[in-house]
Simulated scan of single mutants.
Amino acid sequence: MSRQAPTLRLDRLLANLGYGSRREIQGLVRAGGVTLDGVELEDAGQRIPVTRDLTHRMEVDGEPLDPPPGLVLMIHKPLGVTCSHKEAGPLIYGLLPERWRRRDPALSTVGRLDKETSGLLLMTDDGGLLHRIIAPRNHVPKRYRVTLDRPLRGDEAQILAAGTLMLDGEDKPLLPVDMEIVSPTSATVILHEGRYHQVRRMFAALGNHVTGLHRDRIGGLDLPDALGPGAYQILSEVDLALVLPPAKAAAETTASA
């Protein structure tokens, strides 16, 4: 049995999506700036079913409605951009349309990449989904391309795969890490956990220094070659299933019920 879509007043819906205050939205509606299925809406208090297809049916000032809550973005984070408001420098939120920064619920990053790491970053306003992806028990794999200061010795992959490497200041060894050597000073690694600065710290524990770090995969979702630094795209249901397969998502939902 399908659930009925939730409804919201038109002015609250658009205000929650960052289009302006409720008073500003009321003025926009009076001016004929909002249409649904090609028909101008006249009542800002009209309740609107919030369905996934609304972005294709409603227009605001002649442009398609921004996606309603449940939005998931894939961003190619450039170097020098931060994910935390506590760090100095340009923020990842600055790559998005200005009104998206006023959305309620707010968009948040799914985990973080540090300032000197580039690559695939997810953002969402779905708190439940965010926690399912980052939950340690789900072990969603993440792949990184690593550039190193010094040539590899040759035994690093074996050490990382053993699951015995200890990081400085910790008392629990890392989970096994999959590593593939690409060149004498570069490799790919796949992590199944997300400790603080893990890639940099584990290569430091192996006597090397990371000079370049780029994440190109989360789960089974790859960063497209066509998505350049600073660009973003909205994830489809198919894309999202690559990050957190439906079976795992369903099991996590059941466990938390």
Rank of each mutant, 00 (worst) to 15 (best):
G127H: 07
G127W: 09
G128P: 08
G128A: 11
G128R: 15
L129T: 09
L129R: 06
L130E: 06
H131W: 07
H131T: 13
H131E: 09
H131Y: 09
H131I: 02
R132I: 06
R132V: 07
I133S: 02
I134Q: 10
I134P: 11
A135L: 11
A135I: 01
P136K: 08
P136V: 13
R137S: 15
R137E: 15
N138P: 02
N138T: 12
H139K: 15
H139Q: 15
V140Y: 06
V140D: 04
P141C: 07
P141N: 10
P141V: 09
K142H: 10
K142Y: 02
K142E: 10
R143F: 02
R143P: 04
R143C: 12
Y144T: 09
Y144V: 08
R145T: 09
R145Q: 08
R145W: 12
V146H: 09
V146T: 01
V146N: 05
L148V: 01
L148N: 00
L148A: 03
L148R: 05
R150A: 15
R150P: 01
R150T: 14
P151C: 05
L152C: 00
L152K: 01
L152R: 03
L152H: 02
L152Q: 03
R153S: 10
G154K: 04
D155S: 07
E156H: 02
E156K: 03
E156Q: 03
Q158T: 12
Q158L: 11
I159H: 03
I159C: 02
L160T: 00
A161R: 06
A161F: 06
A161K: 04
G163R: 05
G163L: 11
T164K: 15
T164W: 03
T164S: 13
T164M: 09
T164L: 10
